[in-house]
């Protein structure tokens, strides 16, 4: 593979919300969003709150629909660029399985499922044997200093920082070539923040393309290879 070729190529993307419960009020978010992310790059989406950073991340993961534009993702299986913006649900699911990972800001805890199983699940669904996946999950959680007494408990009752570490472990356990990070260090103490920074650098070292939002300035300075000011894409003024 040509290592200079982008893994993610976003062009002319626009997004607005139409609030039908508010009389069809249309809220433009972003327009003409365009950027690329190459292997080993950590591109940080910058700009003030509400400018559309999370919306861009969610569109790139297929969680938000786009009004216009292309989101080309290099398919890990075929090495072709696939358009996630216009792709059907099966294409999006397939890209999520093999090509593009996402660490959300908050863990969506499933009742009764232990922290260990939450973390191991992405490996299990990719065909890794459950005991292998579970032991990898344990290593990840240990590295993130989660008390081992919590491993077998469902994260629903964990603190914000503990949940976030479970979420990070789950997002980092796979080797997706593209990783989307939405404020992964927001509720972490300094020691754990440093662990996450080290984990991000390891990912970059093996050529993972990272697109992220980091409000935490020391973290951003430690990991960013490039910062994109999302204000440039803001469509709010046009409303």
């Amino acid at each position: 593979m040509d290592t200079s070729a982008p893994l993610l190529d976003v062009s002319s993307v626009a997004k607005s919300f139409t609030m039908h419960l508010r009389g069809g009020l249309r809220l433009p978010v972003v327009a003409n969003v365009a950027f690329t992310v190459h292997p080993g790059e950590c591109v940080v989406l910058g700009g003030p709150s509400g400018v559309g950073k999370s919306s861009i991340l969610r569109m790139v993961y297929g969680n938000y629909a786009v009004d216009a534009g292309q989101i080309l993702v290099r398919d890990q299986t075929t090495q072709e660029m696939a358009d996630l913006a216009t792709g059907d649900p099966r294409l999006v699911l397939d890209l999520r399985q093999n090509s593009i990972g996402y660490v959300s800001q908050f863990l969506r805890a499933v009742p009764r499922v232990s922290a260990l199983d939450v973390v191991a699940e992405p490996l299990v669904t990719r065909g890794v044997e459950r005991n292998v996946a579970t032991s990898r999950a344990g290593e990840m959680l240990e590295r993130l200093n989660l008390p081992s007494a919590l491993f077998t408990l469902p994260p629903a009752t964990f603190s914000g920082g503990e949940k976030q570490r479970v979420n990070i472990a789950r997002g980092f356990i796979t080797d997706h070539p593209i990783l989307l990070l939405d404020e992964p260090t927001a509720s972490l103490d300094a020691a754990n923040r440093d662990v996450v920074v080290a984990m991000i650098k390891e990912k970059l070292g093996v050529g993972t393309a990272i697109l992220g939002i980091f409000h935490d300035i020391p973290v951003r300075e430690a990991v960013a290879t490039r910062i994109i000011d999302v204000s440039a894409f803001s469509a709010r003024e046009a409303a």
Binding site: F17, R58, G62, N63, Y64, A65, P89, V92, L93
Partner: peptide, 8 residues
């Protein structure tokens, strides 16, 4: 997609 329909 379920999460797309629910979140957007």
């Amino acid at each position: 997609l379920t999460d797309r329909v629910l979140d957007d």
